[in-house]
Simulated scan of single mutants.
Amino acid sequence: MTLPITAEGLPESPRAHSVGIGRAHAKVILLGEHAVVYGAPALALPVPQLTVTASAGWSSHGSGGQGGLSFTMTGSASRALVTQASDGLRRLTEEFVARMGVTGGRSLEVILDGAVPHGRGLGSSAAVSRAVVFALADLLGRELTESMAFELVQTAENVAHGRASGVDAMAVGAPGPLLFQAGRATEPAIGCDGLFIIADSGVPGSTKEAVAMLRAGFAQRAGAQDRFVGRASELTEAGRRALADGDPGELGSRLTDYHELLRAAGLSTERIDTLVEAALEAGSLGAKITGGGLGGCVIAQTRPEQAREVTRRLHEAGAVQTWVVPLKGLGNHAH
């Protein structure tokens, strides 16, 4: 992929580097997906063990009038990820260049190394976009505020997914859990420990397709949107209170209820439902599909002593890989 970007006459900055590095991580939605697009709240967690690193440098090939930005992809997930996100990255890069006032004709190369599976509801496209933005800013020695980073990542997300709520753009850079609503994020109170097990169904979903399908369904049934968003808001608020009050059983129940809401809307699949059922039968306090749906991942809330059995049962039920995200310690990881 070659994108138009130039850098001749770039003002020297004492903070500029010969190579710029940017990083981001995956995220998982606990409660609120889809409804968050309509202004409802959502609870999200960072997944710090799944990362994307972007390295940006000036190309030794082809400086000249055209300029360009080329991507090299390494790691297990990056090729499909960057292919899917290419239009959004093009828009993001153009916006970055315009904001930073970069002019001239040198070319850039970006190497992306990613471990966030594509199409699993884990924020892969947002993580790539954030990593690229911070790598370019680091290379040029420019300060990039969180609000500017958010706006740039949103530029790419709206291309990749249609109408993006912004929760992914925030969560892939968040050090800890966040409560997101209408473009604003706060840190929710955490009154309990616990583990969340993410299980990859092995089947990619499509957020864009799921969002469009849900919107079409709303258009066909009077009051359907209000009912869905209202119920989603109730469950997310109940989950937020349970998290703050240290009531893991209540939180788990709300996760399972939210799965039923998404399943009734046609956003689950037979394989996802099988994984949810396996997690619950193995003793999970709650389980649900996470992300856009029509494939992707399941998240199960589990007591630490149940984690081994839940993980085993999830793999038996068809999970191709699993990750454990402990509530305790989130917010202290390096990113």
Rank of each mutant, 00 (worst) to 15 (best):
L195V: 03
V203Y: 11
P188D: 02
S201C: 05
A169I: 04
P175Y: 06
C192M: 15
G205A: 09
A169V: 04
G176M: 13
D200M: 00
I198Y: 02
A171I: 07
A182E: 13
A199S: 01
P175T: 09
A169F: 07
S206H: 14
F196Y: 09
P177R: 12
I197C: 01
D193R: 11
G183T: 06
S201V: 01
I197L: 11
D200S: 06
A171S: 15
G191E: 08
L178S: 06
G176I: 12
L195P: 00
Q181M: 13
C192W: 13
M170A: 14
I190A: 10
G176Y: 11
R184P: 00
C192E: 12
F180T: 01
I197P: 01
A182D: 12
G194M: 05
L179C: 04
S206A: 15
A169N: 03
A182R: 15
G191T: 05
F196L: 11
D200C: 02
S201A: 08
I198D: 02
D200F: 02
A182M: 10
V203M: 14
V203T: 14
V172G: 07
E187P: 02
D193W: 04
Q181I: 06
P175C: 12
A169H: 03
G191L: 05
G202A: 08
G202D: 07
C192T: 15
P175L: 15
A185G: 09
L178F: 10
I190P: 05
G176R: 13
D193P: 03
F196T: 02
S206M: 14
T186G: 07
D193M: 02
A185V: 12
I197W: 02
S201Y: 05
A174V: 08
F196E: 00
D193T: 13
G183C: 05
G176H: 11
G202N: 13
L179Y: 13
A174H: 10
L195F: 06
G194S: 04
D200A: 00
A169S: 14
G191R: 08
D200I: 00
G202F: 12
V172C: 07
L179M: 12
A169M: 05
G205D: 12
D200W: 03
P177K: 08
G202S: 07
A174W: 05
I190G: 01
A185S: 12
A182C: 08
G173A: 11
Q181K: 15
A189G: 09
P204L: 06
D193S: 10
E187Q: 10
P177W: 12
M170F: 14
G205Y: 09
A185I: 03
A185K: 08
V203I: 14
E187K: 12
A199H: 00
